[in-house]
């Protein structure tokens, strides 16, 4: 999938710069003053207990949730500024949901070509050819004319990933992509993500798969109570955690 990564990937170039990000729902403060950066080629894995704000953090990155404070700069542009072109921005940020969210009234091929045709103004034939190529890479080309209801959970999620890739995003956001899957299907989805990481796709992955975070992540971040309490490269993160809460959390999940 190397053609999904920009030709002139400048390693270490900052892709997303998050400054003092806060988010409240009414009186409920979910994220408090988060600052971090995501660089090109990073595979950032976010872990943490339920309700700690992981999804909210991820959804703020493409403004599915509107931050209530702070700034998010994507490739230098402040996307939280009034008048920022959100729709344009989202084309560059693929998102994969826990519940797949394929469009049930369309075939797999239509699911994948809708946005490239309507938004990128691609020729239908061209869009379909690219979609077939992507499907081939995840081993689903024979499902092109099936409907989502005819696919297993693992197949649906692989389609959801390549549907996002068809827009040639600069970064992929994953919100617990394997949590809704039967255990025997987790592997096939993680393999696709592993492959993506190998091809230097920038990824932010909220996950409970510690093995994946350790093996594939370039950086692991621990969120609790609406902030990142610890972040490190995976080896040190898992073998030598510093924060007491993280130690307790890892004690429970590992």
């Amino acid at each position: 999938m190397s053609d999904n990564v920009q030709e002139n990937v400048q390693e270490n170039e900052i892709l997303i710069d998050i400054r003092d990000l806060s988010k409240s729902f009414g009186d409920l403060k979910v994220l408090t003053n988060i600052s971090t950066t995501i660089r090109k080629g990073d595979v950032v894995c976010v872990i943490g207990p339920s309700g700690s704000g992981k999804s909210t953090f991820l959804r703020c990155l493409n403004l599915l949730e509107q931050p209530t404070g702070g700034q998010i700069l994507v490739e230098g542009d402040d996307i939280t500024a009034p008048g920022a072109n959100i729709d344009q921005l989202r084309r560059k940020m693929g998102m994969v949901f826990q519940q797949f969210n394929l469009f049930p009234h369309m075939t797999i091929l239509e699911n994948m070509t809708l946005a490239p045709i309507k938004l990128l103004k691609k020729e239908k034939a061209q869009a379909e050819q690219e979609a077939m190529e992507l499907l081939r890479r995840v081993g689903l080309e024979e499902k092109a004319s099936s409907y989502p209801a005819q696919l297993s959970g693992g197949q649906k999620q692989r389609v959801a990933i390549v549907r996002a890739l068809a827009m040639h995003p600069d970064v992929m956001l994953f919100d617990e992509p394997t949590s809704a899957l039967d255990p025997e299907m987790v592997g096939e989805v993680l393999n696709v993500m592993r492959q993506l990481a190998k091809e230097r796709m920038t990824m932010v992955v909220v996950t409970h798969e510690m093995g994946f975070a350790r093996e594939v992540g370039t950086r692991v971040m621990f969120m609790e109570g609406g902030n990142f309490l610890e972040e490190n490269e995976p080896e040190a993160f898992f073998s030598n955690p510093q924060n007491e809460r993280l130690k307790a959390f890892l004690g429970k999940v590992l």
Partner: peptide, 25 residues
């Protein structure tokens, strides 16, 4: 609600998402 979110996250605006994704269903 996930259908709207999926549409928006691909870059469709609200009206386009309604038109191509929500209304047909």
């Amino acid at each position: 609600e996930g259908q709207m979110e999926a549409g928006r996250s691909l870059g469709f605006n609200y009206v386009q998402t309604m038109r191509y994704i929500i209304m047909p269903q």
